[in-house]
Amino acid sequence: MSATQTRSAEGAAAAGGEHRSRGPAGPDAGYNFGYLDENTKRMIRRALLKAVAIPGHQVPFGSREMPLPYGWGTGGIQVTAAVIGPDDTLKVIDQGADDTTNAVSIRRFFARVTGVETTERTAEATIIQTRHRIPETPLHEGQVLVYQVPMPEPLFRLEPSVTETRRMHALADYSLMHVKLYEDIVRHGHIATSYNYPVMVNGRYLMSPSPIPAFDNPKMHRMPALQLFGAGREKRIYAVPPWTEVRSLDFEDHPFEPVRADAACALCGSRESYLDEVVTDDRGGRMFVCSDTDYCHTRQARREAAE
């Protein structure tokens, strides 16, 4: 269901079932609020403001060492740390789930260094940090969605030179990507990209949506919430302001189509949500369940209440 987890840097064990909690007694006095020092926060904040002003453009920043290894969302963590305040309520998801080791570690980290409230409920969160999914519950104006990004450059598989990709963005020359998608169609009869599907932001910049399923791409379009992206290893920040046009690249005769498994969730019955295929036993038994655990739990609870 979720990606394989390595050991937790915080020594946190996965713990499900905590729906809403407050840091033990405010932030740990041993840390500056939000862990980062004020100089680093200011630098990240300036980068964030420019990123919002130039939707989809990658802004370089001086990424810092974090107490979690790269691949654990250090870019997203630094963005969250620069934005979060005592009045926020934080939700952290990893491929839709609140209870993986990665999500639990990041949530505990922020509870410890800020003392903020945390939640698993999408609707209650003011900041949602995510790895590889957009929640099913539509986001609203008061919310900020922070994506953990492993590779911010959408052209990197097609053009390895950073100097070249920078020039292509400057000229809005995205013919390489169009050719790649067109070759997909010639070879497979359709565009064979099911996640990290490139988008155009505000009709100007080609942007990587991070490795979310292409199914989630339409949720980025004119989203009422602010979307911020942090890539720690690659030292880039980018953003999509609220209500901004986000289009998945496609062709007139091969329009973009978000795909999901043609099944209902085995737990809540949803036919709208994005599904993960889960192995249920060692004899090859399988079932489909929602990847968004909060969405699925909420629907199950509603169904039980109705019975």
Binding site: R45, L49, V52, V83, G85, E141, L226, P242
Partner: peptide, 14 residues
């Protein structure tokens, strides 16, 4: 600084 930044971020985003 956090409170002010959040106000500026909100202002720039909206």
């Amino acid at each position: 600084a956090q409170r002010c930044f959040r106000a500026v971020l909100e202002a720039m985003a909206r």
